[in-house]
Nucleic acid binder design. Structure first.
Length: 349
RNA sequence: GGACAGGUGGGUGAGUGGUUAAAGCCAACAGACUGUAAAUCUGUCCCUCCUUGCGAGGUACGAAGGUUCGAAUCCUUCCCUGUCCA
């Protein structure tokens, strides 16, 4: 899922997302849209889909990630989270119930329960306490949601927490399974821990979740990690890497990473990724992309984001095809044998 | 010909006697980024050497001399640039 926190996937129009990228769903953020422009205003406009002119699905994150990313601006209590707005300092209380209400107002298709996304490292005790709170919040959110869901066509996903402790993950999952939710998320990853740990936590948690419902790992990952997660039964992922890195000149290609500002691309007349069929790769040279980046041109962000998102979604589509044709094991094997997919740092030049 | 103003590292531009190999910005080069406070942030950016250290030498603020314990900073001469006046 491309991340569109503020009701826009940065640098892309919905038309790009639809036509060139064929994204089926994008992610938006409750905390950010609540603060600006305000969920009630969006509701008056007929919901977020209309407001941002996006006809397909929207998943809204609850603001749980902001508990982590804005940790200096918030206070967690049993009742919920008090945020001091990063925009103007106003205080706002987010509760499991209020975040459901906000997401209903936005017209979200998949809502996320408010959770506490803990940083890394965290002690066992702190993690247990935090996970318990997340469970209580999930129960509260679901109770509220079931009272209100009639008339809405939306799903609410709980989020498994438990930090880097397998037994806490397991316990949390077990509790949340009671909710019989339409889908489950694994949260609290990509918060500073080594990659192997995130992968291990997914490996521990994913098998506990119902196979007939979407399983969603929040906030991952690098392209080479996607097949790994899919192989563990993960159906959904979101990550800012393709969009943010695009704007910062880090492009993902079938030949490895391309840091477009490097001098080696000054006179490079080849396409960014010869194996990619996106508009950027079909149309422009690396030299031109580098020029746009160095010149600080807006078009760079557009073309780079277009490509990176397309690269991620193409990766997912290839896996989907492989699964449909019963060839996923072979696909996985080819990923593992390709040097590209061997963990990070040793990508070819 | 005259009067002012000025010449600083790749570019701009601070610095007007010592903690200045010389601020800041830009450019260049490298890196980071994982449910987005990010079109952001970090590092390097004169040369040589090593025991790689808030290390040791060398060279450097138009040029050449001079004053001083010490000069990018003060003095002299010359060269060059800009503006204005003839």
């Amino acid at each position: 899922m491309p991340v569109g926190t503020q009701g826009t996937v940065k640098a892309l129009t919905p038309r790009d997302l639809l036509n060139d990228i064929d994204a089926k769903i994008v992610l938006a953020n409750t905390y950010h849209l609540f603060l600006r422009p305000g969920h009630e205003r969006i509701e008056r406009f007929g919901g977020l889909h209309k407001f941002m002119a996006w006809p397909r699905a929207i998943l809204t994150d609850s603001g749980g990630f902001q508990v982590f990313s804005l940790d200096t601006l918030r206070k967690v209590t049993d009742e919920g989270v008090v945020f001091r707005s990063h925009l103007n300092g106003d205080q706002h209380l987010f509760t499991p119930q209020s975040t459901v209400d906000i997401q209903l107002a936005l017209g979200s298709d998949i809502m996320m329960v408010l959770d506490e996304c803990l940083g890394y490292p965290a002690s066992y005790e702190a993690t247990r306490e935090s996970a318990d709170r997340t469970i209580r919040w999930a129960l509260g959110a679901f109770e509220h949601y079931r009272k209100r869901e009639k008339g809405f066509h939306c799903a609410l996903f709980p989020i498994i927490q438990g930090g880097m402790y397998p037994e806490l993950r397991t316990a949390c999952a077990k509790e949340l399974l009671e909710l019989d939710a339409p889908g489950y998320a694994i949260g609290g990853l990509s918060v500073g821990e080594p990659r192997e740990l995130s992968q291990e936590m997914v490996a521990v948690t994913a098998p506990l979740l119902p196979k007939d419902r979407p399983r969603y790992v929040m906030g991952v990952g690098m392209p080479e990690e996607l097949p790994l997660y899919v192989s563990q039964g993960i159906d959904m992922m979101d990550c800012v890497l393709p969009t943010r890195n695009a704007r910062n000149g880090y492009l993902f290609t079938s030949q490895g990473k391309v840091m477009i500002k490097q001098a080696q691309y000054l006179d490079d007349t080849s396409p960014l990724d010869p194996a990619c069929e996106c508009y950027t790769c079909r149309t422009f040279t690396r030299a031109y992309l580098r020029h746009l980046y160095q010149a600080g041109e807006i078009l760079f962000s557009v073309l780079a984001t277009l490509h990176n998102i397309r690269y991620y979604l193409d990766t997912m589509r290839r896996m989907r095809q492989a699964i449909l044709f019963g060839k996923f094991p072979e696909f996985l094997k080819s990923c593992q044998s390709s040097s590209l997919w061997n963990q990070s740092d040793h990508l070819p030049d």
